[in-house]
Nucleic acid binder design. Structure first.
Lengths: 135, 135
DNA sequence: CGCTACTTGCGAACTACTTGCTTCTTGGAG
DNA sequence: CTCCAAGAAGCAAGTAGTTCGCAAGTAGCG
């Protein structure tokens, strides 16, 4: 598995727990640490919450996962491969929709041109009201 | 004061503490509940943190202040009058810059057209790297 | 196969925020 | 001007989410 490479290059190991955490993130799409832990417990009940937290942090350093703020305060994790969309969080119903990252391309360009600011659009959710709740 | 109106219309009161909280938010531009509390304590040392939290919530319901997520998890409050800009948070140095809301106009329009999503751009910070750190 | 450094599990500690309860205060009514 | 009900403040305990310390376990190089 290529993942092993990413880890070992930094002197890290691919432990069963770590593998499970990564797999859980990939399957869940986006999930809070708590949700990841729950998922992992399905196949490995003894895993500790702090292990999940540590592994998410580790995997993030290596670049295999990334976190996003969806608003409630807690971070939400993604597999790095999926980071091609941004999140539309509805303040009314709480749903989280996706949109391809290029709807923001123009916006990102504006910020780069006018402020020299290099934007990571997917890091924060976009807050508003979804189509269903607007009605 | 007009504020009194906004409050009383909803059966709420204008207490010294509430006034101070509002004033602190206005003076600070944007601040975490903790920072507001600290500011208020300068002139009213006995104020309780929970009072600040409750007042921020109350003032938000009335529409005099609004909160934004800047990322660390805690909310950040603004006076409603100042909500005409969005926040550029730098992941490297942690600085928070402002940008007029119209740089996002295009982006907002895209989301509205393609997804029927009504965006509140200022609610979440825009994450990235500021000009100074890009160098 | 053995060793060493990285990891895990677990409990306790922390931080940021919330809630319950009692006492005090605001502000409209009399 | 005084009274009173409802709202608000203060305090303290509670909760959620996350981190830390340390002893025991284990991946993986040699």
């Amino acid at each position: 598995m290529a993942d092993q490479h990413e880890l070992r290059d930094k002197g890290l190991r691919l432990t069963p727990q770590r593998e499970l955490v990564l797999q859980a993130v990939r399957e869940l799409g986006h999930a809070t640490p708590e949700e990841v832990a729950e998922k992992v417990r399905a196949t490995h009940p003894g895993i500790n919450l702090s292990t999940v937290y540590r592994n998410l942090e580790t995997l993030e350093n290596v670049g295999l996962v990334q976190h996003t703020h969806l608003g409630h305060g807690g971070a939400t994790y993604h597999a790095a491969e999926e980071l091609t969309h941004l999140h539309l969080v509805c303040g009314d119903c709480g749903s989280v929709g996706d949109a391809p990252i290029d709807v923001a391309a123009n916006f990102v360009q504006n910020l780069a041109d006018d402020y020299g600011f290099r934007t990571d659009v997917s890091h924060f959710a976009i807050y508003g009201t979804c189509a269903a709740c607007v009605k």
